[in-house]
Design a binder for these strands. Sequence first.
DNA 1: ATTTTTACTGAACAACGTTTATTAAAAAAA
DNA 2: TTTTTTTAATAAACGTTGTTCAGTAAAAAT
Lengths: 203, 203
Amino acid sequence: MGINERREREKQEMRNFILRTAADLFTELGFEKTSIRTIAEKIEYSPATIYLYFKDKNELFYAISQEAFQLFFKYFQTVSQDADPMKRLQGLGHIYFKFAFENPGYYDLMFILRAPMDVEETEDHWELGHQSHSVLTGLVNECIAAGYFKGRDPDVLSHLIWSTVHGIVSLKVRDRMKVYIEEERTDLIYQSLDLFNDILEKV
Amino acid sequence: MGINERREREKQEMRNFILRTAADLFTELGFEKTSIRTIAEKIEYSPATIYLYFKDKNELFYAISQEAFQLFFKYFQTVSQDADPMKRLQGLGHIYFKFAFENPGYYDLMFILRAPMDVEETEDHWELGHQSHSVLTGLVNECIAAGYFKGRDPDVLSHLIWSTVHGIVSLKVRDRMKVYIEEERTDLIYQSLDLFNDILEKV
DNA sequence: ATTTTTACTGAACAACGTTTATTAAAAAAA
DNA sequence: TTTTTTTAATAAACGTTGTTCAGTAAAAAT
């Protein structure tokens, strides 16, 4: 039955069309300010049509966040080939920065925004997040094997590293450095990461 | 003219009444889900009345955040009297944690949430944020004077410390640890802080 | 040719932040 | 004391928002 196949394909194409438009609009305007009606207008369909492909705005949220995590994981895979795992670990911080500042809307969605309404997460929804995290833990363990981080718990270390980089990034992404620092100091962001990377060698 | 004074007093009381109710509701429901209409119902006035005392929801946002920063600064002033500035600095992290986890709604408002609409900040709006930050920089400088952090830039160090603690806190407050860690691991939070404090001595 | 299924939409609902015309009460002026 | 003016509060409405549902026109199946 080629007809049913074509129909299924068209359905997926439509879903994808909505998703891409929504992701674009979201990147441009932020998630909160991107309304179903705006998306509908852009794809030249009625708002109700969107609900034939996505249960609600929440599901759209998770679908876009999936795309974001895919891109995030791609960034993570560009980790350097350096023989020293510490060098690779330090580079990972810069990769994290790169993703966050090149895709602040995505970053917001993934690590800061709460899902708009009630949550119903698939069990494997964070799969790529976990995989990205194991890139980090993998490097940490390699570092330990190479003699770094003597006597440290790799889980705690990984969580501290993730938190630190996320902390620097999120204060910038949410424009919250002004809360405690008077002047605009973008330099502090990169210097903090460099300092942290520097410290890591001595932990 | 005692009458005008009484009226001015009543006006302030009403403003305060709204503010306290709004802050309560916000702490309970979060800022986004606390509507002007809900506040109005709770104070048993019409929604329009609130607009006689606050320009818009934005102004309410900033007024509540002022209260939050006052409380935050109070917490910061409970820093220990230890002779070793490093000990005091390490204690400050725990104080930060205490504030954040005892007042997650406030923390959200201060360091994570963006103001809902257009921003019009008073110049001294972050005054208490800056003061809190100088408690940190003060301690960092004391540490340097005591022989710690040799050759490190105190501004960069302070920013790194703030970011790290904020990073740990905000991932928890926004329930985003699950993004990269499968199980619930509250222990990691405190262990990460302890590890970071431990590391600080060796920077 | 007729029935059934599909894809889509217009109109409506409830809740939101906000504005405006109006009213009732209080204060000031006569 | 009576009249005028100022004030405080509100009901009703506007333009949004996410979401639902009855209805429609076209396509597919019978």
